[in-house]
């Protein structure tokens, strides 16, 4: 019988920890909440918690797209620029045509994001440009296009149709619309990643690209698809963003790609591809949201935000690397004994 012997127990424990990353973040979040609420009683009020959820809704949507890309061993740096460009185009359109219903505006955002995402997909899958370079290029191309089409001007709250602004302010069944959007997206992509063959192929491509080719997975198409989806979600997030902040500017969401990537890697998505779960990413966004909120509440200057994000990215990546190396060593020394 193939059984696990006693001396491997330590390794299984390590595995358990690696396997249930969500657990680790949850524990961390609980500690953080406890610590912050000691310093600031307002933190644990319903108002504030709902505020945090609303605050991370857009981040969660973008981070889910980023997750798909990172699962395949790639990266998408252009999400924030895509978000801004989609937001600007939709914002200018609805300010000219006030009659456009909010649903159509959202669909417009999806379509614009899909186009921008598929450009990334073509550059990476067909043009074979390293993902970081391709999306670094489109990051500035899309950002520049925001400026080009707006001429540096911005779309103001009073230029937007009322129903559109209320899209993000209203609640449905007591749940804020923005949070509802994030929940719907999370459920759809949870289903996609876990219950469709294509979803599983995304994991397979990131886990072992050459083996993926051997079993007949079309790696190029998967790469194209994840960029398409990442762009689409960022495009939708753009519409929600301008509705929430009631303005579209040329520097909308500047640097937001870092928050998305941070939420993803903190949520346990391996930057080397192949592993990571959607619940983990949602928790990752929540953690980032709580940190930002807490920094505000305990009156630490917002200027810490960026440094904390960078530090957390490095911390997550270094600990992942060290952990997986430990696992590999454990596996190697056992395999050949």
């Amino acid at each position: 019988m193939v059984t696990v012997s006693e001396e491997k127990k330590g390794r299984s424990l390590l595995l358990l920890f690696a396997g249930v990353r969500e657990m680790g973040i949850s524990v961390f979040i609980v500690f953080l909440i406890a610590a912050v609420s000691l310093r600031s009683p307002y933190f644990l009020t319903v108002d504030n918690l709902v505020y945090i959820l609303i605050d991370i809704a857009i981040l969660t949507i973008v981070a889910i797209g980023e997750t798909l890309v990172i699962l395949t061993r790639s990266i998408d740096l252009s999400v924030a620029s895509t978000l801004a460009l989609s937001g600007m185009i939709v914002g200018m359109t609805i300010s000219k045509h006030q009659g456009i219903p909010p649903a159509v505006a959202v669909l417009m955002g999806l379509a614009i994001g899909a186009v921008l995402g598929s450009v990334n997909g073509l550059l990476v899958a067909k043009g074979r440009i390293p993902p970081i370079i391709a999306t670094l290029g489109t990051l500035s191309i899309y950002r520049g296009l925001v400026f080009a089409i707006s001429g540096g001007a911005w779309v103001d709250a009073h230029e937007m149709p009322r129903p559109f602004v209320y899209l993000s302010k209203n609640t449905t069944l007591g749940i804020p619309n923005l949070v509802l959007f994030a929940i719907i997206v999370a459920i759809i992509f949870y289903y996609f990643l876990n219950h469709t063959r294509t979803g599983r192929e995304i994991y397979a491509v990131g886990s072992n690209p050459s083996a993926a080719r051997v079993v007949g997975i079309r790696v190029d198409r998967i790469l194209f698809l994840v960029y398409l989806l990442s762009g689409t979600l960022a495009g939708m997030a753009g519409v929600l963003w301008i509705s929430r902040y009631a303005s579209a500017q040329s520097d909308t969401a500047s640097g937001f790609e870092l928050q998305a990537i941070a939420a993803t890697v903190v949520g346990g998505v391996n930057i080397f591809g192949g592993s990571g779960t959607l619940p983990g990413v949602v928790l990752g966004s929540l953690l980032m949201g709580i940190i930002v909120n807490a920094l505000n509440l305990i009156r630490i200057s917002p200027f810490w935000k960026l440094a904390v994000q960078g530090f957390i990215i490095l911390l997550a990546v270094v600990s992942d690397a060290l952990l997986s190396r430990r696992l590999q060593q454990a596996g190697a020394s056992e395999g050949a004994s």
Partner: peptide
Amino acid sequence: LGTYALYRG
């Protein structure tokens, strides 16, 4: 990418 955020921060 991490130090890009960290150093600017």
